[in-house]
C-alpha cells in the first residue's frame, strides 16, 4: 500500500485480473505433454506458472484463493472471454497469448506506475509479462513468416480470436486506467507485430454478439463451463478437506 493509493484493493478489480490469470494459466496447463517441441513444454509451463502466481496474489486480495477458484459457479467468474477460449492448435494459443499479454503488459505497466493497491503486484508481473509477450511475438513472426501452412494457420487464429479483443478495454471498477489510451497503444503494438509477421490486422467487429464486457459481467462462452467442471471436480468432491 502506498500513501497515495486507495487503502484497499477493489474486490471487483482483484477478481477481474485474478480470474484472467487463473483461467489462462489453466488453459496453458492443458498443453503439458502436448506441446510441439520440448522447449515449448518448458516455455508454456513457465508462462502458466507466472500467471498462476499472479492469480494467487490477486485472488487472495479478494478472499480465500481456493474458495474463489474452486467453489464459484461459472457466472461468478469475472475473466475475459478471450482467456477462456480453448487452446485450439498452437497458432490459436499463440494468438491468444499475443492479444492478452500485450494488453496485460500495458495494463500492469500503468498500474505499477500509478502507485495504487495493485502497484506492487503489477511491478513484478510486468517483468514476467514482458517475457510472455516476447514469446508470443517471436512465435508470431516464425509462424506468420514461416511456411505457407503456418502463415495460413496463424492468419486464421488471429482472425478467430479478434472478436474477443474489444472486451479488454471496458473499464474495470477500481482500476485507475486511461482505457481509450490503453486500447490505442494495444492496437498500435499488435498491428506492428502482425505487420512484421507478414500478417494483416483482422477485419470485423472486436466484440461478439453479446455486449462488450460480457466476461467481466459473468457471461462466458460454452467451453468455459466444461473447463471449470474439470478444474473444480476433485476439490468439490471432498467438501472441507485440506490438500
Amino acid at each position: 500500500m502506498t500513501a497515495t493509493g486507495p487503502a484497499t484493493a477493489s474486490v471487483t478489480a482483484a477478481l477481474a485480473l485474478g480470474d484472467d490469470a487463473l483461467v489462462l494459466s489453466h488453459r496453458l496447463g492443458e498443453w503439458a505433454g502436448h506441446a510441439p517441441a520440448l522447449e515449448e513444454e518448458v516455455a508454456l509451463a513457465n508462462i502458466a506458472l507466472d500467471l498462476l502466481g499472479q492469480a494467487r496474489v490477486l485472488l487472495s486480495l479478494a478472499g480465500d484463493e481456493d474458495e474463489l477458484a474452486y467453489l464459484r459457479e461459472e457466472r461468478a467468474f469475472r475473466n475475459l472471454q478471450l482467456v477462456e477460449q480453448p487452446n485450439g492448435d498452437f497458432a490459436h494459443t499463440i494468438a491468444r497469448q499475443l492479444y492478452f499479454s500485450t494488453y496485460q503488459h500495458l495494463l500492469h505497466a500503468e498500474l505499477a506506475a500509478g502507485g495504487g493497491p495493485f502497484a506492487p503486484l503489477a511491478a513484478k508481473a510486468v517483468k514476467e509479462v514482458a517475457y510472455h509477450r516476447d514469446h508470443a511475438e517471436q512465435w508470431t513472426l516464425r509462424l506468420g513468416d514461416g511456411t505457407e501452412t503456418s502463415h495460413e494457420r496463424m492468419r486464421r487464429a488471429y482472425a478467430a480470436l479478434w472478436r474477443y479483443t474489444g472486451e479488454m478495454f471496458q473499464p474495470v471498477e477500481g482500476l485507475d486506467v486511461d482505457w481509450p489510451a490503453l486500447e490505442s497503444r494495444w492496437l498500435e503494438s499488435v498491428t506492428e507485430v502482425l505487420g512484421r509477421a507478414t500478417l494483416s490486422v483482422p477485419e470485423g467487429p472486436r466484440t461478439g454478439a453479446w455486449s462488450a464486457g460480457a466476461g467481466r459481467q459473468g457471461i462466458h462462452t460454452e467451453p468455459f463451463g466444461r473447463m471449470l467442471a474439470e478444474m473444480q471436480h476433485l476439490h468439490r468432491s471432498h467438501p472441507g478437506a485440506s490438500w
Binding site: L22, H26, G29, E30, A32, G33, E41, V42, A45, N46, A48, L49, L52, G53, A55, R56, L59, E65, D66, A69, Y70, E230, M231, H233, L234, H235, H238, A241, W243
Partner: peptide, 19 residues
C-alpha cells in the same frame, strides 16, 4: 492431474514438477 489439482498451491507445484 494438472487440470484437476485440488488447490492452487498443489497445482503450482505439479506444473513446476512436470516442467
Amino acid at each position: 492431474w494438472i487440470t484437476r489439482a485440488p488447490s492452487l498451491r498443489r497445482k503450482a507445484i505439479l506444473m513446476a514438477k512436470v516442467q
